[in-house]
């Protein structure tokens, strides 16, 4: 297995380099001269000159690329073009609030989706099944924005159960007072597509030969579902969760924007608005690396979930 991990890490290197290259091309080449980009956003000419020097704008592209690579590996992207806060500091402080919301969302959504998917798969083909599926489709077609606007208005403004916006310094207060409404919102919206997906996983498994064997052995239908099918369906479900895991770090930027949560997602949106390239570049590159690491961990975990997987 060590050989497998080493090989994977080795394979990550060209990809990481590719990401760096992509971001570089996008922001340094296509994006171009910060002077033009920031025109109208920053009035101080000295500041702009400073930025240009740091980026090495007047130097040949490969030098600029080297500067960028160095930045990535020393975790030093300089300062935000708009707030002048250190970019590394920005990233580290914003991750917390994002995770405070996103981790509960991930767990609760997955749990509920799997539960409902099993129930719906159990009654497949019936009217209930079709109604639930259509309800999901309709629910998914309403824009997330509409949900946020309505929920905020209903639960925060009209009913006053939760604050409409805000965040505090205390973790516990955040978790129990400020986070619930956004979490509830994300779960409500997130269950529908996952329910559909997981239901299809269950149905795929139900039609397999080994299910027929289980029935032939006299296993009652409930046992077939909960033991045989579930255990197999867990494989694609975990794949799905694994794919969603990196997204947890960016969080739902819409939620953070609407609810004024000082998270990484909102930070990126603000950065886009202000053309604050260093922030965007840094977040992108680091999240790409985190994604690759998470993928590796998920793949390793596969061995325990799917006995057919072997590491060569």
């Amino acid at each position: 297995m060590t050989a497998y991990v080493i090989r994977r890490v080795w394979q990550m290197i060209p990809t990481i380099f590719g990401v760096i290259l992509l971001i570089f091309i996008l922001f340094n080449w296509v994006g171009g001269d910060p002077a033009q980009v920031l025109a109208g956003k920053i009035s101080n000419p000295d500041q702009i000159a400073n930025i240009r020097r740091q980026l090495g704008v007047d130097q040949p592209y490969w030098v600029q690329l080297l500067i960028f690579v160095k930045q990535v590996f020393t975790f030093d992207f300089g300062r935000s073009w708009s707030t002048n806060e250190e970019v590394s500091h920005i990233i580290l402080t914003r991750v917390g609030p994002t995770l405070t919301i996103m981790l509960p969302v991930l767990f609760i959504t997955t749990g509920l989706s799997v539960l409902f998917a099993v129930l719906v798969a159990y009654v497949r083909g019936t009217l209930t099944d079709r109604m639930v599926m259509i309800a999901c489709t309709v629910a998914m077609s309403i824009s997330f924005l509409v949900y946020i606007i309505v929920f905020q208005w209903l639960f925060g403004f009209i009913l006053g159960w939760f604050p409409v916006q805000g965040w505090s310094e205390s973790f516990w207060k955040n978790l129990t007072y400020y986070a619930p409404l956004p979490i509830m919102l994300a779960v409500f919206v997130g269950v529908a597509p996952e329910l559909r997906l997981y239901r299809s996983f269950f149905l795929d498994e139900i039609h397999q030969d080994y299910v027929r064997t289980a029935r032939a052995k006299g296993v009652p239908e409930k046992g077939v579902m909960l033991k045989h099918v579930m255990r197999n369906a867990l494989i694609p479900i975990l794949t799905n969760v694994g794919i969603a895991l990196p997204g947890v770090f960016v969080g739902s930027f819409l939620l953070e924007v609407f609810f004024s949560v000082p998270g990484l997602g909102r930070e990126v949106v603000t950065a886009v608005n202000r053309s604050d390239f260093p922030v965007i570049k840094a977040v992108t590159v680091y999240l790409a690396i985190i994604t690759m690491v998470i993928n590796l961990l998920v793949d390793v975990m596969y061995k325990f979930v799917d006995p057919r997987v072997s590491f060569k």
Partner: peptide, 26 residues
């Protein structure tokens, strides 16, 4: 159904054509 489930695998049993897919892989 309850009665059938008691008979299946106990008094009447089956083997299928494709053993690879007929066995639960996990």
């Amino acid at each position: 159904m309850r009665e059938m489930q008691q008979i299946r695998g106990k008094e009447l049993s089956v083997i299928f054509q494709e053993p690879m897919t007929s066995l639960n892989p996990v």
